[in-house]
Amino acid sequence: MDERNYERFVVDKDIECYVGERRYNVILYDLSSGGCMIEAPQAPLTDGVVIHLRMNKFIETSGQVVWLAAGNAGVRFGELLHEAAVRHLGFTPSDLPFDEMTPTDRFGRRLPALPRH
Rank of each mutant, 00 (worst) to 15 (best):
G20M: 03
G63H: 11
I51T: 04
L68I: 15
P115N: 05
S94H: 07
D12F: 02
L31S: 07
H52G: 02
V86Y: 12
A73M: 09
D12C: 03
R22L: 03
P44Y: 02
F107M: 09
P112W: 00
S94L: 12
L31D: 04
F91R: 15
S62Q: 14
V66M: 12
Y6I: 06
F98G: 00
E100Y: 11
A43P: 01
M37W: 04
M1P: 08
H52E: 03
H117K: 12
L31N: 07
N25E: 00
E16I: 04
T104Y: 01
N56R: 01
R76A: 15
G108N: 03
V19F: 07
L111T: 00
M55N: 01
N56A: 02
T46E: 14
E79F: 14
V66N: 02
V10H: 08
R54K: 10
E16V: 04
A69P: 00
A40F: 03
I27F: 03
G78C: 11
V75L: 08
V49D: 02
P97T: 08
K13R: 13
A85K: 12
S32G: 10
C17V: 04
L80E: 15
S32I: 11
T102G: 01
D47V: 03
P97Q: 07
W67C: 08
G78S: 13
Y6N: 13
R116T: 13
L80C: 11
V65G: 02
W67I: 07
H117G: 10
M37Y: 12
T92S: 14
T102V: 15
Y18T: 00
D30N: 13
G90W: 15
F107N: 11
M101E: 12
P93V: 10
S62F: 03
R106T: 08
G48E: 04
V10T: 10
F58G: 05
G90V: 13
G108R: 01
A85D: 15
L81A: 15
E3H: 11
G74H: 11
